[in-house]
Simulated scan of single mutants.
Amino acid sequence: MKLPELMRAVGDVVQTGGTAVHCEALAREAGRLADMVGWASGPIDPQGQLLDRLATLQEDLGERNARTGDAGIAMLHDALSVLGRAIARHDEQLDPESAGEDEGEGFA
């Protein structure tokens, strides 16, 4: 599954719900994609649109989980967090303007 397909499937879960098995499968897929992020040869989300969409899906999943208490929804929400952080970290490492920003912090 590619990232756009995952995001569409998560959007469907937000709209209609999903079984625990389905949510777990999507969470595993998000984890698999997060593990593959480092292999990308260039930025994945240079304009930040993808991360914005992931954040919106997470908010929507959080609201659905608050209504239903569904553990599968919570698992999927957390997996999207991991994926979003992996993408952000990858893109920051490729951005020459952010290079060295963390160096020396806390070592005054």
Rank of each mutant, 00 (worst) to 15 (best):
D91Y: 09
P4M: 06
S98N: 13
E105T: 09
A88W: 12
E63Q: 15
V13Q: 00
I44T: 05
G106L: 14
V37I: 08
L94R: 12
L3T: 04
A9H: 03
D52T: 01
H77N: 12
G42D: 11
D60F: 03
A79C: 15
Q15C: 09
L54N: 00
A9G: 03
E105W: 14
A99G: 05
R8T: 08
F107Y: 04
D45R: 04
V10I: 02
E97C: 12
G100A: 07
M7A: 13
A86T: 13
P4V: 04
D45E: 06
Q58T: 03
D60T: 02
V21F: 01
L54G: 03
L51R: 10
G84V: 01
H22R: 09
E97A: 15
R32L: 12
S98Q: 14
I44N: 07
T56R: 08
A9P: 05
L6H: 02
I87A: 12
F107W: 04
L50A: 07
A108G: 10
A74N: 07
M75Q: 08
R85S: 09
H90I: 09
Q47C: 04
R28W: 03
E92H: 09
A66H: 12
Q15P: 03
L26E: 06
D52W: 03
A74T: 02
V21P: 00
L26V: 03
G106F: 14
D45N: 07
S98A: 15
D35N: 14
I87H: 11
H90P: 10
D95Q: 09
L94E: 02
C23W: 00
L33E: 05
I87D: 12
A40G: 06
E24A: 12
I87L: 14
R53Y: 01
A74E: 10
L26A: 06
R64C: 03
A25G: 09
S41Y: 07
S41G: 15
I87R: 10
E105L: 14
L57E: 03
D70V: 00
P43Q: 15
L83H: 09
W39P: 00
L51H: 03
G104L: 08
T16K: 08
V10W: 00
A20L: 00
V82F: 15
A25I: 01
Q93D: 11
A99H: 11
Q47S: 08
V82D: 14
A34Y: 01
M1H: 13
P43R: 13
L83Y: 08
R64V: 06
A88K: 13
E97M: 14
I87C: 12
L54E: 03
Q15R: 15
Q15T: 12
G31S: 15
